[in-house]
Amino acid sequence: MTAQADDELWSAIGDPSRRRVLDLLVSHGAVSASWLAGHVPFSRQAVSKHLAVLEQAGLVSRRKQGREVLYQVEADRLDQAARAMGDLAAQWDRRLATIKRLAEAAHAEAKKKGEDP
């Protein structure tokens, strides 16, 4: 994956409105843009824009069914994004746990010295 593709991915899911669209696609499967517009607090035009960005980032694909165009999530790509975010969060959890251990040990040490000089 190229750096540019990464950028697209993160900016695509960095927007709360687009995450709302993604959530609806995840929970309802393949649906049309009109259906989505009926389930979000923003315009049909905004929905189309968000879908275009999500499609560009590879998170959403479209297919024709009769006269309708249906949108669906791309599981692999979304999974990839989820894992990357999960990994970053886990990394910070580990770092924070280490900071806690270090600070508490330093504090305990200082207290001991203070009590017993």
């Binding site: 899911i13 929970s27 979304l78 989820a82 894992r83």
Partner: peptide, 17 residues
């Protein structure tokens, strides 16, 4: 390429799928 849905939804505050 497997799994990850639960985590995605967790992190992005979505609904259960």
């Amino acid at each position: 390429h497997r799994g990850g849905w639960a985590e995605y939804l967790d992190r992005l505050g979505g609904v259960v799928a």
